[in-house]
Design a protein around this nucleic acid. Structure first.
Lengths: 230, 230
DNA sequence: TGTATTATTATGTCTGCACATAATAAACTG
DNA sequence: CAGTTTATTATGTGCAGACATAATAATACA
């Protein structure tokens, strides 16, 4: 066996798990043993298994060894592109319209989520992303000017906060909450749909260090599908 | 600098990207150069950058080199646990109730999605997962008996298909579609909510090789939040 | 001048070795 | 025997070197 790549090993390991040669909860041979079996370096086995562990298929612990996951928590990867790119990737024409821009004290539910003091003034931008002229997603965003000093120079009349922030603010961490909600009056007006329509909603918080940069609620027009694969 | 781990390098690379020392679209020094700068092996730089590339922060291409992503497609990881585990992890009591089980010809929308011939008999199971006695998610599942020969022996009266399949069927892959839908009559009856309520719905297909094992529609009770972080 | 061929180069992967570290098992001790 | 200390061990990480491969740049050629 000459060409023993880490991918070959992954395939074989997956086959053994699928065919129950190695059963859920069971320990599998050590890296050293597998390296002997596959006639390769331990580093190669290590890489193969490390990547599989990242997907949740196997569990690894020092000294305890590697075992097939008992409670398979599969991990799927969601791609979070810029909205413009997402629309253009579907072959549709992207359109953008700013609906409102204010620098106002944020309501409490926003300041709580952003971990800021109540009534702190934040930049509030509402806008609409269009696909082939039709409303695609309604963006309702709060931006912390203290974390993004030059935000007042941003041309949100022509560039979406989504895009401007991605291009102008240092990349950092965040979290995302996906829910289904009935369309509010504001959603309904922006998207041109009846109030109460079931909407796919994503709420995202973005941090830099411990500061919350921005909080955004994205209400997608009916029919939106977020897809991923395992 | 003695302790130059790949994590240290990742942190520093991220810092340079955040602080615009390396700007979006710009090429960054080669692995060899960075190895010299950080006084470590190229393999260490390689690992640091390879992992960052997996998150979409940088783009790497042979010969062309490594550059900071111009259109950052962030990648978030969704955990897909067994429903029982998901509920118990929140400290709630898990409950399960089978609502129906039939071996019937599947409707066309199901056979299409499962890539099967029309009207093929499939095992249809409807059930409810409860959290602290309250409906949590309504599971409407179709199982291909040809791909899961022993499915008729499965005790779906007491164990959910979700759980039984994960424990008993070798899975090779699948895809997930997340949407928001108004509750159907069936959803409403199962979950005890008004028809038309906005529901978070996940549709999952699971494959073994090219065969579709199962197609499931999971309609979550109002208030369900799917969370992830970047 | 446009096209085909041939370097060149940065990343991709593998090896063999070394030491670090966390978690367990074994030994020890009061 | 319970509790603590001390091996032991599988994985985690790092290094130096080698060859593979894809993509570009340079060159040769028609």
């Amino acid at each position: 066996m000459s060409h023993t790549s880490y991918r070959t090993i992954q395939t074989e390991v997956l086959r053994r798990i699928r065919t129950r040669v190695w059963q859920p909860g069971q320990i599998i041979p050590s890296e050293v043993d597998l390296a002997v079996e596959f006639n390769c370096a331990r580093a190669t086995i290590n890489r193969a298994l490390r990547e599989l562990a990242e997907t949740g298929i196997i569990d690894r612990r020092r000294k305890a060894g590697t075992r097939v996951s008992l409670n398979p928590v599969r991990k799927a990867t969601l791609d979070i592109p810029m909205t413009r790119i997402e629309i253009e990737a579907r072959g549709l024409t992207y359109g953008y319209k700013m609906l409102a821009k204010n620098n106002i004290p944020a309501p409490e539910d926003v300041t709580v989520r952003m971990n800021l003091v109540p009534l702190q003034p934040l930049l509030h931008v509402k806008c609409l992303h269009l696909a082939d002229g039709k409303p695609h997603v309604f963006e309702d965003r709060w931006i912390n000017p203290n974390a993004v000093s030059n935000v007042f120079t941003a041309p949100f009349e022509t560039v979406s906060p989504n895009e401007w922030l991605l291009q102008n603010v240092p990349i950092s961490g965040g979290d995302i909450v996906l829910t289904a909600e009935p369309a509010t009056v504001g959603d309904a007006a922006a998207l041109g749909i009846p109030k109460g329509t079931a909407l796919f909603v994503a709420e995202r918080r973005t941090f830099i260090g411990t500061d919350t940069i921005t909080f955004v609620r994205l209400a997608y027009a009916p029919g939106y599908r977020m897809t991923t694969h395992i």
